[in-house]
Design a protein around this nucleic acid. Structure first.
Lengths: 224, 224
DNA sequence: GGGCGGTAGATGTCTGACATCTGGCAGGTA
DNA sequence: TACCTGCCAGATGTCAGACATCTACCGCCC
C-alpha cells in the first residue's frame, strides 16, 4: 500500500468552504437569513468561535452581513477570493493585459472630463516621472502619473479598481524581481497620452495609453 | 452641553482598523512577522478571539498569511475592501464604464486567440441569447455570452476579474431594479462582435464590443 | 389606534484551558 | 567536521461556558 498524506486543513477553513458552497449553490440565496451561530455550531460540530471566524471572513468581503441582535444575512453570492488567488499566481502577460484595459479606459474618460486643474496636476506628475533617477523613485512616479490619469476619469469605481490592481500587481512583480529588464518605451508615449487628454481627444488618448504598455507586452510575448 | 452619540462599533472592527493602519502606513511591511496573538491581545486590551477574527478577515483577502506554529506575516499591503465598498454604492454610469473596459479588452484578445472550437461555442451562446424569452433568461444568456468571450481571451486573470465584477454588478442592478427599461441595442451589435472575432480582427472586435455597451451608456448620460 | 415596555433570541465579548504544529537548538553519531 | 535525531519553547488552532448587549416582535395599557 502506498503512503498518503493525512487529510489536513483547519476546522474554520472547512466551515468557510461549506458556507461558500451554500451561497454559491443558492441554498442560501441573497437576502436570506442564515442559521444562527449556535445552530451552525451544533450542526457542523465545531465551536462557536470557529463559526464566527468564518462568518467574519465572509462578511469582510461583503458576502455576508451581520446584524447584531438579529441575525446574519447573505449579501452577495460573488466571493472575490478566486480573483485574489488568481492574482497572486498570474503570469506577467496576463497582468499587463488587464492593466492595459484599465489604462485605456481611464485615458479615454480622462480626455473627456479633464479640467484645466487636472491638466496642471498631470503635467507636474509627468515632470516628476521624467526627473526620477533611481528605479524605485521612477516606479513610484510612474504609478502616481497613471493613478492621476485614473482619477481624472472621474469614476470612483474605476479609480479604486485601478488602485487596487496596480498595488497588488506591483507587489507581485517586485517580489518576483522579474521587472528587472523589461523594456521601457521612454517618455514619449506618456507625453502623447497627456497631449491627447489636453486636446480632449478620447480616441487618441486611448490609443496612446495602449502604446505605453504595448512595447512591454510585445517583449513579453517574445520571451514566451 | 450638546448630546453626542456614544462611540459605536465593535472591538473586532476597531482591531481590524488598527491592523489595516499598521499595514497601510508601512509600520508592518510586507514580509514582516506581526506580533503574536497573545501579545496583540494584551496591547490592544481585547480578547484573543477578537484578535483572531480580525486576523482571519485580513488573511481571507490576502493581506495577512498565518503560518501555524510559526506566526502571522504580512503578505500584501493592498486591501480590496475599499474597492468592494465602492462597488456597492457605485453609480450605474461608473459600473458600465468599468464593464466596458473589460468587454473591449476581452473581445480584442478573443479575436487574436480564438480557436474553431471557441467559435462554435460562442455561436451557440449567441443563439441562446437571441432565443431567450423572459428578461431573467435573457439576462442569464447575455451574461453567458459575455463570459464566453472573456474565456476565449485565454487570460485567467481577466476571466476571473470579469466574472467577479459582472456577478456583483448584476446583483446590485437587480437589487435596485434600475435595469427595468435600459435601452438594449438589439442583437446586431453582439453579432458584430462575434463576426469580428471569427475574422480575427482585434480592432474591429474591440470597436464592436464598445458599440454593445455605448447605447446604454449614452442613455444613462441623458438621464443624469 | 398608537405608544410603551417586556421578552426571546440573536450576536458581541471574555476567560481559561488544552491540542497541535513549527522552528531552532542541543546533543549524539558517523 | 558534518549530519541527523530528538527535545522544547512558542506560536496558532480549537474548545467550552458564561455573560453582556442589542434587535425584532408582541402583548398590554392609555
Amino acid at each position: 500500500m502506498s503512503l498518503q498524506p493525512v487529510p489536513r486543513g483547519s476546522a474554520v477553513d472547512a466551515v468557510l468552504e461549506q458556507m461558500h458552497e451554500q451561497v454559491a449553490s443558492g441554498a442560501w440565496a441573497v437576502g436570506d437569513r442564515i442559521p444562527g451561530e449556535h445552530e451552525l455550531s451544533a450542526v457542523l460540530r465545531v465551536s462557536r468561535p470557529a463559526i464566527r471566524e468564518a462568518i467574519r471572513a465572509l462578511s469582510h468581503v461583503g458576502v455576508l452581513e451581520v446584524r447584531r441582535g438579529d441575525g446574519t444575512y447573505v449579501r452577495s453570492a460573488a466571493d472575490p477570493r478566486p480573483l485574489l488567488r488568481r492574482m497572486e499566481r498570474a503570469s506577467l502577460r496576463d497582468v499587463f493585459e488587464v492593466q492595459l484595459a484599465y489604462d485605456v479606459q481611464a485615458a479615454k474618460l480622462a480626455a473627456t472630463r479633464r479640467t484645466p486643474d487636472d491638466l496642471r496636476r498631470l503635467e507636474a506628475l509627468l515632470r516628476d516621472r521624467d526627473a526620477a533617477e533611481d528605479p524605485a523613485a521612477f516606479g513610484e512616479a510612474d504609478s502616481r502619473f497613471h493613478l492621476g490619469v485614473a482619477e481624472t476619469a472621474r469614476n470612483p469605481l474605476l479609480t479604486e479598481a485601478f488602485r487596487f490592481f496596480r498595488h497588488r500587481l506591483r507587489e507581485s512583480l517586485s517580489a518576483l524581481r522579474e521587472d528587472r529588464d523589461l523594456p521601457e518605451g521612454g517618455p514619449a508615449p506618456h507625453h502623447a497620452v497627456l497631449e491627447a487628454i489636453a486636446e480632449r481627444d478620447a480616441d487618441a488618448a486611448g490609443s496612446a495609453a495602449a502604446r505605453v504598455v504595448e512595447p512591454t507586452l510585445r517583449a513579453l510575448e517574445e520571451v514566451l
